[in-house]
Design a protein around this nucleic acid. Structure first.
Lengths: 299, 299
DNA sequence: TTGAAAGCGTTACCAT
DNA sequence: ATGGTAACGCTTTCAA
C-alpha cells in the first residue's frame, strides 16, 4: 500500500466498476445549471457525495432540451452510475420505464413525479402560506405571478403554487380575478416583464405573490420603474429565500434547496450501502421570512 | 443490432472503458456551480459534449474547498475521464504535476495557469477598456470594486482587472488613490457592501468600475439606497454581460462565457480524436456594451 | 496470511 | 465476411 501510494497509483474506475458492479458515481439529471434552485440543489447533492468519494455525473438536458433523447440513451442508461437523482424533470412514461429498468435507486427533487420517490416542499402549502400572509396584512386585491410551464420541466410546481394561491384567496372569501394572474419564466427578467403587464392591466392591486424569489425581484424592479413605493404602494412576497432576497429585503417563504439536495444524496447513498428503501415522500418544511417588501395596504 | 435495440441493450461504460481506454467522459473542475460565470461556462461545455455523446463529470471543489484533496485523489485521478477542463482554479504545483501525469489533454478556462493551456479573455485589456470608457466620458475620480482573492481560486483574474484599471488611469494622467479601491467577493451582496464602504470613504467619486457585473449590480443597489441617481450622480461599469445587466441597464464589457466553454470542450474533443494539440492561448474578444448606467459626470 | 485464478462485459485482433 | 479469443485492470473467491 505504501509503495502504491508512493508511485502515485490510483485504481482505474472502469476496471473496478466492471469487477464490482459499482461505479461510485451518481447521475444527476438537471434541466440546466444556471437557475438558482437547480444549482443549489446540485451543490447540496455534490457536497454529500464528495464526502464519501462519490462522483457526480451531470446529465444536463440543456436549455433547449434538444438532446434529451440522446442524453437518455447514450448516457443515462449506460450503467455509468449507481443511482439517479432528477431535478424538476417531467419524465415521459417511456423515460420512466427505462429508468426503472436500470434497476437502481432513483429519487426526484423539487416537483413530484408519479411513481418516483420525491424530496421537496409542499408546493401548495408554501403558496398558500405566502398568500395567507398577505391576506393577514389586510390585502384583498392580490395578484399572482405564476410560473410558466416550460417544456420538459415539471409542470406541477407552477400549477400547485397557483392552486395554493387560489385556495388561500377563496378560503378568505376573496375573489380570484383572471386579470390578477400573469405568467412568466422563473427568472428576474421574466418576473419584471410580467409585472409590468400585470400592473398595466390591474393597477389597483395592493400586493403580488410571485411563484419564486427571482420573479419577485423582477416585480420589485418593475414596481420601482413605475414609481411605486414598496411596501407602501405594493407588497411583494416570493418563494425560495434566494441569496438576493435578503439584499432586496424581500419577504419570502424560505425553502432549503441545499438541504433537499443533501437529503436526496443521503437517501441514495444509504440504499446503495444496503439500507431498505424509505418510501417517502420527504417533505421539507418551509417557513415565512418577513422582510421589508410587505406591509398593510395603504388604501 | 435491431434485436439489441429491441431488447433495450445499452453497452456498459465500465466494460467498454476498460477495453478501449476511452471513457467518453470529460472531467470539469469547478470551484462551485452557483456563480454565473462557472455555471454558464459549464453549460457551454456540456452543450458541446452532449452533441457527441460525451458525459460531463463534475469535480466540484466545493464552496469551502474542504474536500479538495479528496476530490483530487479519489476522483480526478481515477481515470474516469478522457480529458479535464478546469475553471478558474488555482492549481498547486503538486496538483499540476498529478494532472500532467494523467497524461490526458487539459485546458483551463477563465484565468491563466502557468504551464496549462488557457481559454479566456484578456483580463487586463477588458478592465482597461471599461475604465477607458469612463475616462472618455470625462470622469476623473473613478473608483474600482476589485474582486477578492478567494482561496483556491485563480487570483490572477481580480489582480489583472485591477491592474488594467490602474494602467488606464495612469495612461490618462489620472491619479489612483488608495481610497478609491474596495474589495469584495464576486457577487451582488458583496458588491453592494463594498460600494457602501467605498462611497462612505470617497463620496466624491463620479464613477465606479466593478470587476464583475454582479458586483456592479450590487453597486447600483447601494447607490440607490444612498439616494444617488444613476447615471447622473454616479456612473457604473461592470464586466461580463450577465443576464441581469440588461435588466438593470448596466453598461458593461461583454464576455462570451458560453462560447468559452464551447471552445474548451471543442479543443479537448478534437485532440481526443487525434488532432494535434493547438498551443493557444485562446483569447476571446470582449466588447463594450453601452447601456444606461454611464454618462458624463454632472460636476 | 498469502497467492493464484476466474470472471466482470467489452473491444480488437487474428484465424478461419 | 465471420467467429473465436485474448486482453483490458480490477475484485473476489478459493486453495494452499
Amino acid at each position: 500500500m505504501a509503495t502504491a501510494e508512493q508511485l502515485g497509483y490510483v485504481a482505474s474506475s472502469s476496471a473496478s466498476g466492471l469487477a464490482t458492479g459499482r461505479t461510485l458515481a451518481m447521475g444527476v439529471v438537471v434541466p440546466n445549471v444556471t437557475r438558482w434552485f437547480y444549482a443549489t440543489v446540485l451543490e447540496g447533492i455534490d457536497a454529500e457525495l464528495r464526502r464519501v468519494g462519490y462522483d457526480t455525473i451531470l446529465f444536463n438536458l440543456g436549455l433547449r432540451g434538444e438532446d434529451r433523447e440522446r442524453v437518455f440513451h447514450r448516457s443515462i442508461l449506460r450503467k455509468r452510475t449507481d443511482a439517479v437523482i432528477a431535478l424538476c424533470i417531467d419524465f415521459t412514461p417511456a423515460e420512466r420505464e427505462q429508468l426503472a429498468s436500470l434497476g437502481h435507486p432513483t429519487v426526484v427533487v423539487g416537483g413530484p413525479v408519479p411513481g418516483l420517490r420525491h424530496v421537496g416542499v409542499d408546493e401548495l402549502g408554501v403558496a398558500r402560506e405566502a398568500t395567507t400572509q398577505l391576506i393577514g396584512l389586510g390585502h384583498r386585491r392580490i395578484g399572482h405571478l405564476a410560473g410558466a410551464s416550460e417544456r420538459g420541466l415539471n409542470k406541477r410546481v407552477p400549477q400547485r403554487r397557483r392552486r395554493g394561491y387560489e385556495l388561500a384567496m377563496t378560503a378568505a372569501g376573496l375573489p380570484v380575478e383572471r386579470d390578477w394572474l400573469e405568467r412568466s419564466t422563473f427568472d428576474i427578467a421574466g418576473g419584471r416583464a410580467a409585472t409590468l403587464r400585470l400592473l398595466a392591466r390591474a393597477p389597483r392591486l395592493t400586493a403580488i405573490f410571485a411563484a419564486s424569489d427571482e420573479m419577485a425581484i423582477g416585480a420589485i424592479l418593475a414596481a420601482r420603474e413605475l414609481g411605486l413605493d414598496i411596501p407602501r404602494d405594493l407588497s411583494i412576497v416570493g418563494i425560495d429565500d434566494h441569496p438576493l432576497a435578503e439584499t432586496f429585503g424581500l419577504s419570502t417563504v424560505a425553502q432549503d434547496a441545499l438541504g433537499q439536495g443533501r437529503l436526496a444524496a443521503q437517501l441514495m447513498l444509504d440504499e446503495l450501502s444496503g439500507a431498505a428503501p424509505r418510501p417517502g415522500p420527504f417533505r421539507f418544511p418551509a417557513t415565512y421570512v418577513e422582510r421589508a417588501t410587505t406591509a398593510p395596504p395603504s388604501c
